[in-house]
Simulated assay, not measured.
Amino acid sequence: MDATVLIVEDEPGIADILRITLKYNGFTVHSASTAREALAAAREHRPDLVLLDVMLPDGTGWEVCRALREERAAEGGGDAEEEDDLAVIFVTARDAPRDVVAGLALGGDDYITKPFGVDEVVARVHAVLRRTRRRARPRERVLRHGDLEMDEATYSVRRAGQPVELTPTEYNLLRHLLRHAGRILTKEQLLQHVWRYDTAVSSTVVETYISYLRRKLDRLGPPLIETRRGVGYGLRALDPGPGAVT
């Protein structure tokens, strides 16, 4: 099965066993050992499934799961169903019935208790991915605004037919602007949706990344990003017709 799995586990021995087993079974595997690393890795690698420990050094798997679900819903314009293709399996020593119920209620698709057999994990991963891929609704994966085009399936951006190379943060910022093209978004809104859950980020980082985007986009055509002084930023409104966001 062609799928990407993110392992979130702070015990190196368990993480190594899961990584080796899943790679052997044909999965692309990424790892994280903290809640913060998990959220960053999920944004960068866009996993199909997350194997998520509950007890992490800087938080809980419950919090990570909730954050991931909220981020995917925000990307879908607030429609949780539209981005319902992320699978989450909790892997934890907490086996009390109330913990299992809590994990499933928070958006988990399955719950595996430690100790576990690796064959069981692989079987559960396959089963959950079959379910989540069936339930995910297909949607348009290309965002357009004027001569700017973003293909979410390939994580590529083009302007006037020319490729634009972006860092993951620049890509996420531009995607949020595209999804709200014609609107002015405040710095607080951009911080929440692009750098969410990272309290170390200040509002000046928004100005910095807006300038990065302008430098890369404006060399290929007229300025696209509008600044509303004292408010925030947005993509300039276009006349109705070809070029509207799809």
Rank of each mutant, 00 (worst) to 15 (best):
Lys216Thr: 00
Gly182Trp: 02
Arg219Lys: 14
Arg215Glu: 11
Gly241Glu: 03
Arg133Trp: 15
Glu165Met: 07
Asp48Ser: 15
Leu235Arg: 02
Gly77Leu: 12
Arg175Gln: 04
Arg19Gln: 15
Tyr155Glu: 13
Val122Cys: 09
Gly13Thr: 02
Gly221Asn: 06
Thr21Pro: 11
Leu86Asn: 05
Leu217Trp: 00
Phe116Thr: 05
Pro222Leu: 10
Ala87Trp: 00
Tyr155Ile: 02
Val121Cys: 09
Val245Arg: 13
Leu56Cys: 01
Glu81Ala: 14
Arg179Trp: 06
Asp198Gly: 03
Ile7Lys: 08
Val122Tyr: 02
Val101Lys: 08
Gly103Asp: 14
Phe90Asp: 05
Tyr233Met: 13
Lys187Val: 07
Gln192Glu: 15
Arg134Gly: 10
Phe90Leu: 04
Leu6Gln: 01
Thr186Tyr: 11
Ala73Val: 07
Glu37Trp: 09
Glu81Ser: 12
Thr208Ile: 14
Ala87Met: 00
Ala136Trp: 12
Pro138Thr: 05
Val29Ser: 11
Thr227Met: 06
Asp84Cys: 11
Thr4Gly: 13
Ala80Asn: 05
His45Asn: 12
Glu11Pro: 07
Ile225Met: 01
Gly182Gln: 01
Phe90Trp: 13
Leu22Thr: 03
Pro97Lys: 00
Leu220Cys: 08
Tyr155Val: 05
Glu152Phe: 06
Ala244Thr: 10
Asp85Ser: 11
Val206His: 01
Leu174Thr: 04
Arg69Leu: 08
Tyr24Asn: 06
Arg130Leu: 12
Leu129Phe: 09
Asp79Asn: 14
Ser203Glu: 11
